[in-house]
């Protein structure tokens, strides 16, 4: 430190002042964090935990179900949309782009309201065509809205990944005389999916966080149960517990993604020195 000062006094003075501000800021954040943890630990009330802990756990299960169902259905929908995005047919590409742009350009809350209350408005028409059972339940509506939303994002991920496979791979396959579908299945998709793992993982994380929106349309997911408990107890600490649940889920998902990616990309990693 002394060496730096003797070299350029004004710069060093400036830097130390910056570090001081930084330290103050960091310690403020640290204090807030410690305060929250302290309040949480302090507020553990066994009686309340016993009467409401079950509700929170139930809500957590609903959230997990919601995310898995939406992701899977969304993945199914995303395949034709991605194909449309890659299509050379102007009309097909246009429709796919419109779908994707609408669901990516508007807030998920608004989409959820549109589907939930919008379907309610057309209940008699929906009953006539026998679709009402699907839209009657708030959880189904949430799954539909989330699935459509994530389908738009997943289609972008998928089509982007396919586009990023180098042209030469396609040409090589054509030179070997493989026909189109075989090329797609054996050559393009395996490479595309490997590069899409990380974005897919991010999408799962985003969906997990966004799933809290379902609570606004009466679904008792983790967020819905937490709000219910808060409205009974006026105890803010339940929100922090819910936050911990969400954070833990996100951590687990991102670690899983790292593991899967490490496993699938082991052939492209630089060879370690240990290998003879």
């Amino acid at each position: 430190m002394t060496a730096v000062i003797s070299e350029a006094p004004p710069a060093a003075a400036k830097r130390s002042s910056i570090t001081a501000t930084g330290l103050v800021l960091i310690s403020i954040w640290g204090l807030i964090f410690v305060g929250i943890v302290w309040a949480l630990v302090n507020s553990v009330d066994p009686e309340r935990l016993a009467s409401y802990g079950g509700r929170i756990a139930q809500g957590f299960v609903v959230t997990v179900e919601l995310v898995i169902a939406s992701m899977l259905i969304g993945a199914l929908i995303s395949i034709p949309v991605a194909a449309g995005r890659l299509s050379t047919n102007r009309l097909v590409a246009g429709i796919a782009f419109g779908f994707s742009y609408f669901f990516r350009g508007t807030p998920l809350v608004a989409q959820t309201f549109l589907i939930y209350y919008g379907a309610g408005q057309f209940s008699s028409e929906l009953k006539a065509v026998g679709m009402w059972w699907l839209f009657r339940d708030a959880l189904n509506c949430a799954v539909i809205a989330f699935a459509l939303n994530t389908a738009a994002y997943q289609a972008e991920i998928l089509s982007g990944a396919i586009r990023n496979v180098p042209r030469g791979q396609r040409e090589g396959a054509a030179a070997l005389g493989l026909h189109k579908w075989l090329t797609l299945r054996k050559i393009i998709l395996p490479q595309a999916l490997v590069s899409a793992i990380r974005p897919y993982g991010n999408e799962v994380i985003l969906m997990t966080k966004a799933s809290s929106i379902a609570s606004i349309i009466t679904v008792l997911d983790l967020m819905g149960q937490t709000r219910y408990v808060f409205s009974k107890t006026y105890d803010l600490s339940f929100y922090f517990w819910a936050a911990l649940f969400y954070l833990a889920t996100v951590e687990v998902v991102s670690h899983l993604v790292n593991l899967v990616e490490a496993r699938l990309t082991r052939h492209v990693r630089p060879p370690s020195t240990a290998r003879g």
Binding site: Y101, F102, G105, T106, P107, V109, A110, Q111, F113, L114, Y117, G118, G120, Q121, F122
Partner: peptide, 26 residues
């Protein structure tokens, strides 16, 4: 969005108003 909700609760036209809100965001 909240103004949209107010509009919906007084007109009972959720589909139309939420669609309009979506288009504004778009």
């Amino acid at each position: 969005l909240r103004q949209t909700q107010v509009a919906v609760s007084s007109t009972r036209q959720p589909f139309f108003f939420y669609l309009v809100a979506c288009l504004i965001y778009l």
